[in-house]
Design a protein around this nucleic acid. Sequence first.
DNA 1: ATGGGCACCTGGCTGC
DNA 2: TGCAGCCAGGTGCCCA
Length: 271
Amino acid sequence: MPELPEVETTRSGIEPSLRGRRIVALEVRDRRLRWPLPRRLERRVAGQLILGVRRRAKYLLIDTDGGTLIAHLGMSGSLRIAAAGAPIRTHDHFDLLLDSGRCLRFNDPRRFGSLHWVTGDPMSHPLLAALGPEPLGPEFDGDYLWKRARGRRVAIKLFIMNAQVVVGVGNIYASEALFRAGIRPGTQARRVSRERMHALAAAIREVLSEAIEVGGTTLRDYVNPDGTPGYFRQKLYVYERAGELCRRCGTPIRHYVQSQRSTYFCPSCQR
DNA sequence: ATGGGCACCTGGCTGC
DNA sequence: TGCAGCCAGGTGCCCA
């Protein structure tokens, strides 16, 4: 469900309620997430002081004085701040109870989300260690993309969705960035010129930052931690617009399945 | 190393 | 109304 903008919106939404608070307890109702929650998690987490909330790729890092909680929202996960006694809804799998009388509540129908506890440098955790650069960070640009694409025959859309290449580009924003850069999603990565890689890197940064500004994209039921939807949907050029007319040239938007994921593009604007 | 495909899971929608 | 079938924002892992 959430891509980088939704995760970043979640981060900034929950951080003010977490920073400086002490964790009273972790209350788990369903341990069956993507990786089953270990039994000892509750006692590890209890009593820790929260120092802040960071994001790396689509992972949220809740730093405490004794270690770091690493959370992932998977396809359908969401986090919100609730009163500690608020009624439990379906798929509310765990609560992080705070000394403020509130809690961080995790809801995830499909249970593709995850939660890990690490001591030491969280970036050395196996899930984080091999990740590519942040798309909004300084190391990511067209030259980087072009160099990484040498010899790569994979479709450019799959290439930019590969977290070892660059993190945070999911199915929505991959299609959107390729539209803005004027590149067909099926083009082999190695066939994209250096110049067009610059356009693509710029488009990725642009699409992601614009989405963050408006609170992400709400497609179905996604809501931000404060309960409001994200408004980027109104700015989508191609995603879920199959058959509708291109906002730029009027040609009908096309849809096909690429590596089991839906891809959208304008056959006239993208070559 | 690279690329392709599968698995994990639930819910909402469509069409018969 | 019921139900089968399909689709969904992610990503680790296995195989060729």
